[in-house]
């Protein structure tokens, strides 16, 4: 009995770590493309996530008040919509700001910080300062218990499944598609990519927009876990940057590995101390490791 309890606690603890891993990876993926591949320090990343989350909220409200027959099924459509809303916003931001700043990476930081402030205030003025959460379909609620005393929340499973799909999609797109080839060529050597006929400007805009779209999907997934407010995005931004930097900026595999490492470190240390101290310990470990090994876990083979 006691052994079974221990096993259950261990499994639930392990699941908590895994679901934190999924969250961190989902946050980091979009940034791994924008920051890792393009070198743009996108401080508005969190706000693109919030944008995706608000899209879900909009769909949920619409479904509830006008189309009650869709309250069970709107969620999947809404996730796709969240991608496209964030994608469009990213497209516009790239067109208006980022394309002028590729040669000044530190200035992209300040400009996108401005974008994030503006977006936060837009959310506050037009949607409202209160935190909102969409009405989730029934199949996302509750928990799955394979046997007595073991409860695994379904929303956690959903986020993990979504993370798997998105990560797989990004890996495939980056390494198997024409777009991925163009992105990698542009990152590796911009003048040469230009010379062989790749439209690097168009590639940049597409890349930035896709990164923002993935952030939108991440935000959409987070609505199943917590509520969304105007400033929710700013809570994630440092974590997202650390995940990408720790993994080695230009390596997607590194991002996966570092999200896993950070999540396990955090959830295991949370078992022994308070949440805030666990966070401090995790962050400090990352910072110290980055000081020792600035290129991150997986260094890219590209020379910059």
């Amino acid at each position: 009995m006691a052994f079974a309890d221990m096993l259950n606690i261990g499994m639930m603890q392990g699941f908590a770590g895994l679901s934190l891993f999924a969250v961190l990876l989902l946050m980091g993926l979009g940034l791994a493309i924008i920051f890792g591949q393009m070198g743009v320090i996108n401080m508005a990343h969190g706000e693109f996530m919030t944008l995706g989350a608000y899209t879900i909220f909009l769909f949920s409200t619409l479904a509830e008040s006008f189309f009650p027959q869709f309250t069970q099924s709107y969620f999947l459509v809404a996730i796709v919509a969240a991608f496209f809303v964030a994608f469009l916003a990213g497209w516009c931001v790239e067109w208006a700001l980022i394309r002028h700043l590729y040669k000044r990476p530190l200035d992209t930081l300040l400009a996108t910080w401005g974008v994030s402030l503006g977006m936060q205030q837009c959310f506050r003025s037009f949607i409202g300062p209160k935190e909102v959460s969409p009405t989730l379909p029934d199949w996302l609620m509750g928990s799955w218990s394979p046997h007595e005393g073991l409860d695994i929340p379904i929303n956690g499973l959903f986020v993990m499944a979504l993370t798997l799909v998105v990560t797989g999609g990004v890996l495939l797109a980056l390494y198997k598609s024409r777009w991925g080839l163009r992105v990698r060529a542009t990152v590796a050597n911009r003048p040469m990519a230009n010379a062989i006929g790749i439209n690097t400007k168009k590639t940049d805009r597409m890349t930035y927009a896709i990164g923002c779209g993935i952030a939108g999907v991440a935000g959409a997934a987070f609505t199943t876990i917590g509520s969304t407010g105007p400033t929710s995005g700013s809570l994630y931004i440092v974590d997202a940057f650390l995940v990408v930097t720790f993994g080695g900026a230009a390596s997607l595999l590194g991002t996966v590995a570092s999200a896993f490492g950070i999540a396990q470190m955090q959830s295991i240390s949370e078992f022994f101390m308070t949440g805030s101290m666990a966070k401090v310990l995790t962050l400090m470990t990352i910072v110290v490791i980055l000081m020792m090994r600035p290129q991150g876990l997986f260094a890219s083979k590209i020379r910059h």
């Binding site: 700001l97 700043l101 200035d107 300040l110 400009a111 910080w113 401005g114 974008v115 402030l117 503006g118 936060q120 205030q121 506050r124």
Partner: peptide, 12 residues
């Protein structure tokens, strides 16, 4: 906040 945002963007 809007002003602050445009300050960041405008200066850069």
């Amino acid at each position: 906040l809007f002003l602050m945002a445009s300050l960041f963007i405008g200066v850069v």
